[in-house]
Simulated assay, not measured.
Amino acid sequence: MNLLKLLSWEVERVTKPFLILVAGLLVVQFGWLGYFLWDETNFYEQLRRTGDADYPLMFVSYLNGTAYLLSLGIAVAAVLLYSVWIWYRDFQGRGTFMLRLLTMPQKRMVIFFAKLGTILMMTLGLFAIEWIALKLQYIAFTSWFDDKMIPTQGSFEQALSYQGILSLMYPSSLINFIIHQVLIVVVVLFIFTFVLIERSFWQRTIWSPVLSLSILVVIFTIPILGYAFLSNRLIYDETIVYVGVVLMAWTGVTIWLGKRFLQTKLNV
C-alpha cells in the first residue's frame, strides 16, 4: 500500500469525527453570535433612552467572548487528542490492527507520514472552514447593526489582528503563516514521537510514559536553554536564523526518533 492509498484511508477514517467537530463549532459560534447580537442590541437601546449611546460596536468584542474562545479551545484540544488517538486506536485489541499495518509490504515510515498528512489536512481544513465562518459572522454582524442603525467600527482584518488566537491562525503575512504551520508540524511530530517511544516501552516498564516524556523534554529544552544563554549576544536577524535552525533540528530529530522506534523497536 503506497502513501496516497494509506493517506486516503486515514482521511476516510477521520471524516466522520471531523464533520462532527465542525458541526459542533459552527453551532456554538453562530449560537453565540445570535445571543451576542440580541444582547448588544437591547443594551444599546437602553443607552439610547438615556442619551449615552455614543460608542461604536466592534466585531472583536464578539470574538473575545467566552463562548467563541471556548469553541477555538475545543478545536485545538480535539486536534491534539486526535494526534494521539490516530496511533493508539490501532493498538486496540492487543495491537492486531497495528500488526497488520506493520506487516504490509511497504516501508513503515509510510504509515508515519500518512498519519502526519492526515493531521495536517485536518488542521488546514479547520483553518479554511473557520475563515469562511468568520466571514459569514462578520457579514451577519455588520448587516444586523446597520439595519438597527447602530454604528460599528473596525474592518474584518483589524478584528482578526486584535484577537490573539486568530492573529496566530491568520497572520498578515504569508511568511508568518508558513512559520506558524511549521510550528504546528513540530508539535504534531513531538506527539507522534511520544506515542511511538511509549509504545516501544510499554511491555518493558510501567514508567514508559515518564521515560518517553523525559526524552522529549530534553530535546525540547536544550535549544531553549541555548537561546537563553545567547539571547543577549544575538541581533534580530541572527535570532530569526537561530529559530529556523532550531525548528529544522526539532523536525529532523523527532522524525529520526519516530523512524527508529517505528522500524526497530515498536512492540505490538
Rank of each mutant, 00 (worst) to 15 (best):
A159C: 10
R49C: 00
L69V: 12
F145A: 11
W144H: 14
L166I: 06
Y62V: 03
Y68P: 01
P105C: 05
A140M: 11
Y138R: 00
S83D: 02
S167A: 14
F97D: 12
I74D: 01
L101G: 01
L37Y: 10
L37C: 10
L80Q: 05
M98L: 11
L72D: 10
I74K: 01
L166W: 04
Y162A: 15
I111M: 08
M169L: 15
F43R: 15
A128W: 10
F141N: 00
I111W: 03
W38K: 09
S167I: 10
I139S: 11
A128K: 04
Q137C: 05
P105L: 03
T41V: 03
L124S: 00
P105F: 08
I74N: 02
G65S: 12
V110G: 01
M109N: 03
M104V: 05
Q106R: 15
L126K: 04
A53Y: 04
W144D: 00
T103W: 09
V110A: 10
L63P: 00
F112Y: 15
M121C: 15
A53K: 02
F145P: 05
S143Y: 04
D39G: 00
D52R: 09
M149T: 11
D147F: 12
M169C: 05
A53L: 09
Y162T: 04
L81H: 06
W87F: 14
L160Y: 05
Q106N: 11
A140R: 03
V84I: 14
L99F: 03
K135V: 14
V60F: 01
L57R: 07
D147N: 13
L168V: 14
E45Q: 14
R100D: 12
S167R: 13
Q46H: 11
D146A: 15
W38L: 13
Y55K: 12
I111D: 09
Q153N: 15
I119H: 00
Y62H: 07
L116Y: 08
T123E: 12
I74M: 07
L70T: 10
G65M: 04
W131F: 07
E40Q: 15
T103D: 11
S167F: 07
K115M: 07
F59N: 06
R108C: 06
M98N: 06
M122K: 01
I129L: 14
G154W: 06
V84G: 02
L72E: 08
L99V: 00
L57G: 05
I165V: 15
D39H: 14
I119Y: 00
T118N: 09
L69Q: 15
L69M: 13
F145L: 10
L102R: 06
L47H: 06
A53S: 08
R94T: 04
E157D: 12
M104F: 13
L116H: 06
G51Y: 05
Q106Y: 08
T123Q: 13
T96D: 09
L124K: 00
Y88F: 15
N42E: 12
F127T: 02
V60E: 03
D146M: 11
P151R: 08
K115H: 01
M104Y: 12
Q158V: 03
G154H: 03
V79I: 14
G51N: 04
G65T: 14
I150H: 03
K148S: 10
R48C: 05
L124M: 00
F141V: 02
T41H: 13
R108F: 04
L102P: 11
F141Q: 02
T96S: 11
G73Q: 08
M121Y: 08
M109A: 04
G117T: 02
L80G: 04
L80A: 13
